[in-house]
Design a protein around this nucleic acid. Structure first.
Lengths: 339, 339
DNA sequence: AAATGAATTTGAACCGGTTCAAATGAGCTA
DNA sequence: TAGCTCATTTGAACCGGTTCAAATTCATTT
C-alpha cells in the first residue's frame, strides 16, 4: 500500500504539500500540484480512509439500525439510505436485530465507538427512559416514528402521517358502505400504532359509526400475526364485512385466513393494508392499500445526517405523506351477515 | 472522549500496560490489571476503533455488495450477512447499486480503500475480463453464483444448486402430466441462469419430451419482466399448460398475467417459481416453488471471510441445497388446449 | 552479598494521514 | 542591494491506539 510519504519523496515535496494537493487547498503552486498529481496517478494512490479518519476525527461513515432488514418496509428504507449515503461518498454500517438480540443501546454504542458521523434509527421501540440515555457521545441521531425527540442528540424526526393513513383506509371502506370494519393494529407500544388507530376512530366517528371494541385488535406487524388475528375476527358471531390492517404484511396473513375460511376477497370481505409493499400489486387480489415511500424515509434520514455533519442544526421534523391506492381487494358491501 | 493515555496516567502505569490489559495479554501482574480495569470502568472507556484499525491494519469491518437490497432474495441474504457479522463483533458496510450506477469496480475500490477485511459480492455479473482485474489489493473476496473464481483474491465461492432446482421444478410438472412446459429464465449472462436452464432441459430429456424453443424465454428476474414474458407465452397459438420461472418475483408477474388472461391457477395453468421468498406462501394461490435459503448464503459468505481473516485458506466452494416446496399453484394437467 | 533469571513495566517508534506555525524563496520597491 | 511582501513549502506535532526491545523489579540460587 502506497503512503503519503512515498508520494512526497517521489514528487520531491513534503507530506504537507501532498496533503494540500489531496485536499484541494488553493495554496499550492500549479507546477507543484501537477507534479504531485502525476505521481499520485502513477501509483494509483488513494489516501487511507482510516488514517484520515483518525486525524480528522470524522469517518465519513453513517450507521443504520433496522429491526429486520428482510421486512419489505425496512429493506426499501435501507435501499434509500444506502443509495443516498453512497452518492454522498459516505459509507453505511448496517446493524439489524440479531436472533441473540443485541439491544439498541449496545448497537448504538458499537456504532459510536466506531466513530460513525451519525446514526439513523428505525428499530423497534424501547421505553423512553432507556432511550433517553442511549450512550452516544455527541453523535447526531435521526429517529423514525417518534413525535418527540426521545434523546438530546436527535437532530431529526421522520414520521409518516399514520393518522391520515388510518383515516383514509377506514373512510374508503365507509364510503363503500361498510359499517362493520375490523381493525388489526400494530405493536401496542410502537409510537406509530396509536396514530393509525386514531385515524380509524376519527373516520368512524365522522360517519357516526359506533366503535365496536370487539373489532379492534392489536397485531405484531408480521404476516403470521395478521393471519391469527384475522381468523379470530372472521370467527366472530357477527364478523366484519371489511378489514383494515396496520401494514401489508398483516394484510397478507389476513388474506390467507380469509381464503382458508372459504371467503372471497373482495366479494365477501374487503381488505385495506398499509405500506404498499412492492408485491402488493402482484398478490391476488391486488391489494388496496395506503401507499407510502419508506425509500424516501431512508433517503431523508441520511440527508439529515449528512447536513448535520457540517452544522449542528435545529431539530428537523418531517412528516411524509401517505395516500390510498385503490386496487382490487375492496368492493361495495354486499352482505350484512356472514356468507 | 477518553484516551488510553488518560487511563494510563490515572492508573499510574504506561500506555503499553493499559494496551496489554485491553488486549488481555498474560504478562500483566494481577494487581496492576485490576487497578487499570477499575479506571477503565470508571471512565466507561473503550479504545477507539479507528486508532486501533490504523495500527493493526485491520478494521474488523466487512463489506457487502448487493445489487438491489429490496429484492427479497437479496434482503434475506443481507440479513444473514448482517447478523453473522454482528455476532462476530464485526461491522458490515453495505453498498448497493445506486440509480446513478456506481459500478462494481468502483464499489470494490471504495471498500478496499476503507480497509475492509473482506468483501462479499452478490451483485449482477460483469464480463470476466473486468472482474479479473478488480482493484482490490489483497482483500479477500467471496462471490456468489460463480463456478470458477473470477479473481485471484477469491477465497470462497457460494452457489445454489440451480441445476437441481431447474430439474426439480420441471420434473414436478412432468409428473403431474404436463408436457408443454414454458420456461422463463434469468438474465442471460448471469452465471446461474445457464444452470437452471440445464436442469429444465435435463428433466425434459429424461421424460423424452422434445424441447420446444418457443416455450423457453429469457427474463430479467423482476416481476414486470415475468409479467411481460408470461403474456407472450399465454398468447401463443398453443400455449403451455405449465410454467417454470427462474425466480419467484417473475412468478408473481406471471401470476398477474395469468389472472389478466382470465385463466385460473392451477386449474388452467400450473406455475413453479424459485427462491421461496417469504411471501410465497401468502400469495394466492400459495406458490409452489424451489426453496433455498439466501439467509444461509449470506451467513456462510461472512463466515468464510471471518475465517480468511486469520489464515489465508485454500479456495472454498459451497453448493447450497434446494428443494421443491409443493403448495397450491400446481395441479394435474387438465387440458391439452387453451381454456 | 552477588549473580542469575523470570516476570513486569516502560517508553519510544510506528500506523498514515492533517494541520499550522515557521521557514523559505521569489518578486518588487526604495 | 537591502528590505519588504506575499505566495509557497516545510516539518514536526498530533490523532489514539499497538508493539517490542530495553529497562526495571523481584525472587531465587550460589
Amino acid at each position: 500500500m502506497t503512503t503519503i510519504r512515498q508520494i512526497a519523496r517521489e514528487a520531491g515535496v513534503s507530506v504537507g504539500t501532498v496533503s494540500n494537493v489531496l485536499n484541494e487547498n488553493e495554496n499550492v503552486a500549479l507546477a507543484t500540484r501537477e507534479r504531485v498529481q502525476l505521481v499520485i496517478q502513477q501509483h494509483n494512490y488513494r489516501p487511507s480512509h482510516v488514517a484520515r479518519s483518525l486525524s480528522t476525527r470524522r469517518t465519513g461513515t453513517l450507521g443504520l439500525i433496522v429491526s429486520n432488514i428482510s421486512n419489505p418496509f425496512s429493506s426499501e428504507l435501507a435501499r434509500g439510505a444506502i443509495e443516498t449515503a453512497q452518492q454522498a461518498g459516505h459509507g453505511l454500517l448496517v446493524l439489524g436485530a440479531a436472533p441473540d438480540g443485541l439491544d439498541l443501546p449496545t448497537q448504538v454504542e458499537t456504532l459510536v465507538h466506531q466513530w460513525v458521523d451519525g446514526i439513523l434509527i428505525t428499530s423497534d421501540p424501547l421505553p423512553d427512559s432507556r432511550l433517553s440515555q442511549l450512550p452516544c457521545g455527541d453523535t447526531p441521531l435521526v429517529m423514525m416514528d417518534y413525535a418527540q425527540p426521545p434523546h438530546r442528540n436527535v437532530i431529526g424526526l421522520i414520521n409518516f402521517d399514520w393518522e391520515a393513513a388510518g383515516y383514509a383506509a377506514t373512510m374508503h371502506l365507509l364510503h363503500l358502505g361498510h359499517r362493520r370494519i375490523g381493525y388489526i393494529g400494530g405493536i401496542a407500544d410502537h409510537p406509530s400504532s396509536h396514530a393509525r388507530a386514531q385515524g380509524y376512530h376519527r373516520a368512524l366517528h365522522e360517519m357516526a359509526v359506533p366503535l365496536d371494541l370487539v373489532l379492534e385488535r392489536g397485531g405484531d406487524f408480521l404476516a403470521t400475526g395478521g393471519y391469527q388475528v384475522a381468523r379470530t375476527l372472521l370467527a366472530l358471531p357477527n364478523p366484519p364485512t371489511a378489514l383494515v390492517t396496520a401494514n401489508d404484511l398483516m394484510a397478507l396473513g389476513a388474506l390467507q385466513a380469509i381464503a382458508e375460511a372459504g371467503w372471497q376477497t373482495p366479494n365477501d370481505i374487503s381488505l385495506v393494508g398499509m405500506d404498499d409493499i412492492p408485491y402488493a400489486s402482484f398478490i391476488s387480489p391486488p391489494l388496496t392499500t395506503i401507499h407510502l415511500s419508506s425509500y424516501r424515509a431512508g433517503q431523508i434520514g441520511i440527508q439529515m445526517l449528512l447536513e448535520a455533519d457540517r452544522t449542528r442544526p435545529a431539530l428537523q421534523r418531517i412528516m411524509l405523506p401517505t395516500h390510498l391506492v385503490e386496487r382490487c381487494s375492496t368492493a361495495l358491501v354486499r352482505r350484512l351477515t356472514p356468507p
